[in-house]
Nucleic acid binder design. Structure first.
Lengths: 201, 201, 201, 201
DNA sequence: CATGAATGAGTGTTCATTCAT
DNA sequence: AATGAATGAACACTCATTCAT
């Protein structure tokens, strides 16, 4: 017990990620300089470059770590039939997954212009787009697409823009999920045949 | 003493605003340098400083011009009683107002981190917050606040993140508004008395 | 008389070129930092960037200015028939031209590795290569090509590597030119017919 | 007690030299970083520092190994009387020696500016200067010095700048040596007495 | 025999801003 | 109404080198 037995070669890499994440969230990606990260950590800028190839690479590592729940969710969803029940479950799970992944989505959300031409920006956007694509899968009427979009936005944006709503984060999550599922309930199930075809893509 | 009496001294100021807006939208606020704006316009950087005090000042001017519809909407809404009917109408009008004001909201949306500590950023956020506050006014149950939030997010974020939904911008707007109003329909009317108190804040 | 009448808007650009040239020659291109150039001139690094787009651009400007005599020589030579007499005259003129252009060739000579992948490096090498090509033009026997190469190298490298030979720069130039012409004298004139064909390229 | 008794501890030192040489030749001394060398070899930078004290030390070792033929040639030449026959033979042998030593001279040639203030740079230049001094030894007329210089330059620079001349490296070497010897033939033998005096220096 | 971790000094480059003219 | 010239502060990144293990 106590003092981590085998590790401790150097936890600097993780400390960098943690510090960088905090700063990226609180000050923005572009406005956080490597100097700041280094100073906060009590190391030199060069030390950051020993552990990461570029500034973007730091964000990439963070994204890989924190984004895992959503990535796994995508894997799961792509194996399911594109039924309404799947979509409901996907929305539920997405709501939960966002809980832990929130910081990176927050960063994506607030730094879109900056991340526009960074590879990592594309990666981040892809995750969101994929969830969205899976939710819209199947042969839906235009108005139904709107309902789906509303449901997804409610869960997605609700996760990091509604601190003012009151209650705990978990209470907010549940309440918003409820509303989103309710909105989704108004969607007429797509024709299973065409749904299968579209879902296979 | 011709057609345009006092004006026409030079339309440079407006041209700057227009060019800056385009660049702020397409490349982001931070990533757009004054050099770029100047070059695109065929003037020197110093010329920009003749017309505007700072870079932020350019964005301020843009915000004032484009944000007027929403500002007027806020003035209107603050004079109304905080009934559900008012909220429905507010949502409808907000949906419309966003149509023309979209570019600045888009800029706010994609550059939040950058605008965080700029006065103009606060101004922009205030407009959104105020609309939101007006929509949430009254003594609502927690779950009802969630519905309101969902409705607002659907209209707000739907305006600049759903190009992929297909249809024309106007079709998307109407469809999303419909869904939002539907979501709002589930809200139990607040107690008028307490509503007045809360709405005054 | 005195104090340059019309100019004097700012001779900074030229002063930068002059200072940079001195430093590039004495310390090498890579080892001369923009900070050094700026400090030597009593301006900031940013001032250099007002006048030149990049560090390489400074060298480019120097090269354009100093290389003019050789460029003009090339233009002249390409209009002449590729006879031995032309080549003798070309060698004489090249010897003279090198006198003023020497500093850039010196820079090229001593910084080849650095300039290898810079556009300006290619430009500089092209000038040398072109002179060489013109001297080798025509249908010469292999041993004659060797003589030509020897003559060119004698004039070219002699210009900036033989300070130790004694005498004034002009005396050295003449003596080396004499030897080079003598070496060239051993070249059997190429068949005029094929010479014309080859020279046209 | 097999074939290689004491050696074979590790050939890393030699592998470093070989890799470094390749990179110094192809990318230049300054532009080749220790990181590159280490990566190419699959070891860490620190490993390089186990075998060599500094970056310059690597080049020194290479220079010692590859420069041996020229060093031996110098020893030989300093024991000979400074006759024209000696000089002819020296030129012949130098031409041959350059064949194997070429890479370091190539490095010297292309990185002069960089090597200017390195001890190894001086060493490298010394070898060239010494050959040159031995060739110029004796009481020659100014014009004769010019002939000697031309001959030396033809052999020296011809070795690494004339790939374009066609033929094999050996054919080029022979042809250029022939021209150089021919140029040397025009030198009037120095007064043996003064030659001895001058040659002793 | 070699590595992992880190440093300090430096690089070229960009930016918003200023001001005399 | 606008320019030409310049600044100071910052930035991401690289390098040769060191040292405990």
């Amino acid at each position: 017990m106590g003092s981590t037995p085998q590790a401790r070669r150097s936890d600097t890499r993780e400390r960098i990620q943690k510090t960088a994440l905090d700063l990226f969230v609180s000050r923005g990606y572009e406005k956080t300089s490597l100097r700041e990260i280094a100073e906060e950590l009590g190391v030199t800028k060069a030390a950051l470059y020993y552990h990461f190839k570029t500034k973007e690479d730091i964000l990439s590592a963070i994204s890989r770590d924190l984004g895992r729940p959503v990535d796994e969710l995508i894997v799961w969803a792509e194996e399911q039939p594109p039924t309404m029940e799947t979509k409901r479950e996907l929305l539920r799970r997405y709501s939960v997954a966002l809980g832990s992944a929130m910081p990176i989505y927050h960063i994506l959300q607030e730094n879109q212009a900056t991340l526009r031409d960074l590879a990592i920006g594309q990666e981040l956007r892809d995750r969101v787009t994929t969830i969205s694509r899976l939710m819209h899968a199947g042969d839906l009427a235009f108005e139904c697409h709107a309902r789906v979009a509303s449901a997804v936005m409610t869960v997605h944006f609700g996760a990091f823009t509604l601190d003012a709503l009151g209650g705990t984060a978990e209470e907010r999550r549940e309440a918003l999920l409820e509303v989103a599922l309710d909105t989704l309930a108004g969607v007429r199930a797509p024709d299973p045949a065409s749904a299968l075809a579209a879902g296979g893509n």
